[in-house]
Amino acid sequence: MSDFEPVVVVFACDYCAYTAADVAGRMNLEYPAGIRIVRVPCTGKVDSLYVLRALEKGADGVLVAGCLDGDCHFKNGNLRAAARVKALKRLLDEINIGSGRVEMVQMSAGQGAVFAETARNFVATVQELGPNPIKHAASQAA
């Protein structure tokens, strides 16, 4: 493994993934410290712009973490988010940032272990992808 410790922004739904993250903490499960969570009322609220802005500000990856299919507190916000993530992935490939840096993940509120595992796996994936390519340019510009 490289020394590269990715920074990942997680937009987490209050009803599931955000709670699952709390549970992970209370279960004393570990995951990399680069995982940083932003609370949203529903992943349906996650604007594509938030994801792009996170990447623009140097995040190496972004997770949109919502409820399991059929469990959305607001009926189908998670499906709206999943569709948006799919479109974002295409855009990220087009601009050579890479579609792998954004994923939609789903879990239920009590699945602390799933949250921790998902976080670890995604960080490992991003490690493979390497740092956000804009960082290099930014450091050169500086």
Partner: peptide, 18 residues
């Protein structure tokens, strides 16, 4: 506009041409 703006900045930064 906001989305393309972000994508343009990202795309240009990726090329090293902010």
């Amino acid at each position: 506009v906001a989305l393309l703006g972000a994508a343009l900045r990202l795309g240009r930064l990726q090329k090293g041409l902010p």
